[in-house]
Design a binder for these strands. Structure first.
Lengths: 164, 164
DNA sequence: CGCAAGGTAGACAAGTTGGTCTACTTTTTG
DNA sequence: CAAAAAGTAGACCAACTTGTCTACCTTGCG
């Protein structure tokens, strides 16, 4: 997971995965029928990790403003490597991976899409399905923050969003 | 350019570039000393293309609201393949490329960052450097829109943003 | 025209890729 | 304990990677 997240899928060969995990090639191909299957498993794992972290961060928000505050401050924690389960921040694993696998028919791409829809659903639920436009704005802002933090190496962007 | 944008850098080998461009390998390496140099050239080219398209789209905006309207409607055009110079929409070339080349020391990554800063500068300028917080929000929203349109295959996201 | 510059096609090198397979060892389990 | 299951190390394969080089051909220009 960490290797793929830190360097991208194409940049990491199976042999590097083996070396870093200390596992034999045969064993790996015993558990996963291909590199794609392995990648899908890492996506699935991170999906669950991320969703449960995010849900926890957004618990008990009462108002739009409160939700925004909790969301942005969670992102700030992540961006500044304060969230152990998410590892060293290197943008969104799903955005990054979708960038490498763009074909709509590719299961990898589809999983990335599903992840994003799940994130949006969590925001919606945190607002009791109240305000669709607010959910949308919050989602777009959070995507923008994650993307900007990564490509601009801007570690303060979430903090600034908190203030505005 | 198109090949790299549509499929990602690692997914496209030099030989595919040659085949698709009808150029001999020697010739290519006569003009570019490496694949990285070629990639940098495509980034540079698209950077200029994109910046000049965007500047044009944002001309003569008087208010925050007007600027937002012009920005979102420009994005909508791009996302729905109405902007010939930008080619078939496949997200932001710079976000996608940064996802593949994450090391801060890599010139490719640095170019991606510079592009984003230039985009932000254009927004700032379009508002006559007036309202920093508004520029920031607009930038984040636009990054979110581009990213969402791509990873969620959501071609209406810019249109919805226009309405809110 | 004649020649230099720069094009073409593609063989080739050295290394990497994902994936299979053999031969052997360790662990689990009835 | 014995047998089966699952692990290990790594050779091997075919295909592909970037990049170099040779040999030939086409241009543009003095």
């Amino acid at each position: 997971m960490d290797l793929f997240y830190q360097h991208g899928i194409h940049a990491i060969g199976i042999n590097e995965v083996l070396k870093s995990s200390g596992i034999a090639k045969k064993t790996l191909y015993n558990h996963f029928e291909s590199k794609e299957a392995l990648v899908l498993a890492t996506l699935e794992q991170r999906h669950h990790l991320f969703i449960s972290w995010l849900s926890h961060c957004l618990e008990n928000a009462q108002t739009n403003e409160q939700l925004a505050e909790q969301l942005f401050s969670a992102l700030d924690q992540w961006i500044n490597n304060k969230v152990a389960v998410l590892g060293d921040f290197r943008g969104c694993y799903f955005i990054n991976t979708a960038a490498e696998f763009g074909e709509l028919t590719n299961p990898i791409n589809q999983l990335c899409q599903r992840h994003k829809l799940a994130v949006k659903a969590i925001l919606k639920q945190a607002l009791n399905d109240a305000d669709d436009a607010a959910v949308e704005r919050l989602f777009l802002l959070s995507e923008g923050i994650i993307s900007t933090a990564y490509t601009c190496h801007d570690t303060d962007v979430a903090k600034r969003a908190l203030k505005n």
